[in-house]
Write a protein that binds this DNA or RNA. Structure first.
Lengths: 184, 184
DNA sequence: GCCTTGAACTTGTCAATGACTAGATCAGGA
DNA sequence: TCCTGATCTAGTCATTGACAAGTTCAAGGC
């Protein structure tokens, strides 16, 4: 990969990574395409070639996020608790992706790449959530309950709403919480 | 209340409402202070007098949101299921407030009004979540589980992630899901 | 009735941004 | 060698957020 000269060589990835950094530092409002271009050392219009506009960049981020989530869920297997913990791990390890993914108004949710990745993750998610279903009658609601509790815990954790001792691992903190759904 | 003349009479509320409308229509990126000023029929700098800057406006929105949530929870009483459904109702009836509240990077989370309102809502929330706790030992985690499942369901609903028949009431849809936490 | 005071709002301004257009550079294949 | 498409630069314009300074108005003291 070349880093100097007319052609950057890997601008798309570089800008994407810079966006994750910038959003992670300053939130979803604290970044600009021009700032990303400056970080990458290219002209202010270069990112537009790869992403079109701001929404296009977030669309790419969302698609990447659903892909990463699908991979994480795949490795966790079909067990509910493992899938739920994997969900929390993904969210806390990729907070920017997670934050963008579930705000469809920020990007083009009907984009092909996004839709495909989302469906792939959705299938794996349903598989994990189905594992917690006792009675077939309530399986749909049980699946929703499983997704909700994992998603809710991750969201609250990222929002800083859960007061935990500093240094606590979010996955460790999530385990006894997710278990509550199994025990009653 | 006067609507014409040099003094608007109720600019703060008008701009706040306009912000909710604008964000509801175009998302958290699709609005500007100047657009809100135009909608309210005042000069482009008028909103700044009440909110300082963009983050100031979102801070006011967040504070209002926590207040509204506290009221809703108060009416629901200490029962977990009722509190959880009230939480979902609040989120779906005030999606913009809800969306802002749990993105602390968008506003000044250490603002006095916000902190006060958040603590008030938090106390009521803990009360509702405690009602689901069976064993005192697990009560902290059970409370977290209750909050997580309600928050998660609301978030996924607002994100359009839950595929329900059109016209379904979110509170009705949430009831059997939240119940899963009680039944196991 | 007059003046003071402060809140509410306007006008003017500037750097920064998003988006667009046209053009330059480069790599690879026919 | 030339052609084609992808990649990036340079230039531009309306819009925006933020700030400074000035204007209007209401309410209360005298």
């Amino acid at each position: 990969m070349r880093t100097i000269g007319y052609h950057h060589g890997d601008l798309r990835r570089t800008v994407l990574d810079a966006a994750v950094d910038a959003i992670g530092e300053s939130g979803l409002d604290g970044w600009s395409l021009r700032e990303l271009a400056r970080r990458a050392g290219v002209s202010h219009a270069a990112p537009a070639h790869h992403f079109g506009d701001k929404a296009g960049l977030l669309t790419a981020l969302a698609a990447e996020g659903f892909d990463l989530l699908a991979e994480t869920l795949k490795q966790a297997g079909p067990d509910f608790l493992e899938a739920g913990l994997a969900y929390v791990r993904f969210a806390t390890e990729h907070p920017v992706h997670f934050g963008v993914m579930f705000q469809p108004k920020l990007y083009r949710a009907d984009d092909d790449a996004v839709r495909h990745a989302r469906e792939r993750a959705g299938a794996l998610l349903a598989q994990g959530a189905r594992a917690v279903a006792a009675s077939p009658a309530g399986s749909a609601n049980t699946a929703r309950a499983g997704w909700s509790i994992a998603h809710g815990f991750a969201s609250l954790w990222l929002a800083g709403a859960l007061t935990e001792p500093a240094g606590t691992d979010p996955v460790d903190a999530a385990r006894p919480v997710l278990r509550r759904l199994l025990e009653g």
